[in-house]
Design a binder for these strands. Sequence first.
RNA 1: GUGGGUGUAGCUCAGGUGGCUAGAGCACCAGAUUGUGGCUCUGGAGGCCGCGGGUUCAAGUCCCGUCACUCACCCCA
Length: 424
Amino acid sequence: MKYQSIKGTRDVLPEEQKYWRYIEEKIGSVTSRFGYQRVEPPIFEETALFLRGVGETTDIVEKEMYTFIDKGKNSLTLRPEYTAGIMRLYLENGLHSLSKPVKLYSIGPVFRYERPQAGRYRQHTQFNVEALGEQEPSVDLEVMSVAWLLYAELGFSGLSFQLNSTGCPNCRPAYVEELKNFYRRHSEAICDDCKRRLERNPLRLLDCKVKSCQQISADAPVIHERLCEECADHFATLRLYLDTLGRPYRINHRLVRGLDYYTKTVFEVWVQGIGSQNAMCGGGRYDGLIEQLGGQATPGIGFGSGIERMILGMREQNIEPPKLPDPFIFVAHMGKAADLRAVELVTWFREAGLSALMAFGQRSFKSQMREANRLAVTYAVIVGEDEITANHATVKNLANGEQQAIPFDQVVAVLKQACERQRC
RNA sequence: GUGGGUGUAGCUCAGGUGGCUAGAGCACCAGAUUGUGGCUCUGGAGGCCGCGGGUUCAAGUCCCGUCACUCACCCCA
């Protein structure tokens, strides 16, 4: 085969549409109940926005961005995540003048150059939620609840939050220093990756999967025990909310995110069964980000959730989305005059709001009926020489086999009525 | 970037120790029923056995290389 899709990308085929439609409907329904409004920034931005917004030493920026120079010699990048672009959109369009918090969501593709594996693609579709301008922990709860309610209504079982606080500029530096000192004492024993992390991204030391490193990290200082008063209060209040609602969560002091902008709350929602990617969504608070991008100091919190990962999880848990409606009418025709009448009929049906299909060209009547059956239509409308002569259509109900003659000028009204009766 | 697995029909896959004229199921087309679907039966179409090289009388099968896909690590949705 000469051409094939790019590594890490995938084609969405008709078979999968019911999942997409179902998820998009649920997203629309849940977000509207929480009062979130949809916005869509372009899929590419100035590269500098992501360098500043995501963090220059993050893996995403260092090795995963699709960056290119356009014909005007500008450095542009396909968005590797939503948040930076949403912050730009918020500032550029003056959304800060709206009443706070400003609650936004988006659905669209994001791009990262990574090695693909189950549930991870170079282009994937992300559902993204942001709440801007409010620092109360009840907003953290609300944002987390959007994710929770979405997955619950999609039918997922075994959901739980993973929760941590990464502190703020007042308390994190001291903690990071303590953490580095702890690991320096074990610098002989940790793996090579961790030796790099020790200097570049110490928080990620806690997240190492190597067994010997995990034994060490079990004794490492724990951040949520070293938060400043403000962060500790915030964390405690959020936990109180979760306890009150009875939402299952686990404090995971290893949960540190790869993006620089997170402060205080970080969370994921886990579901079992999609390979090594057990997180359905990941997000957190980023109280310093907007200021860093040149706006007024504005707190914010959000998360991203991969649609392809949701579909994978639904398949894993045998969650069957409602199937798309089958077409209602198939027009079978025999002979030249009938072909013209069939073209007229499907046109009338469609203009009346009914779904109607027909066979193209002169095919055997049997094969047309077979096709009608395969399409799972409710009615076959049969037009042959007999019908042309008699000026009526033969309408066959494929479910019970009954058929009757209906004059051509009444067939649309009759089937329209039948459709309304069974809410097709 | 690192490690494992797999490449045979549109799809899912069989093809011990090399002997194939390369198979099955599903899907597709047609006929049995010259104007009636589903079920059944019969037939048909559909393959450079990923690609290149090597060993051999003989390679889908063995060897080398290569590409692709895939799972996992890193990281992340």
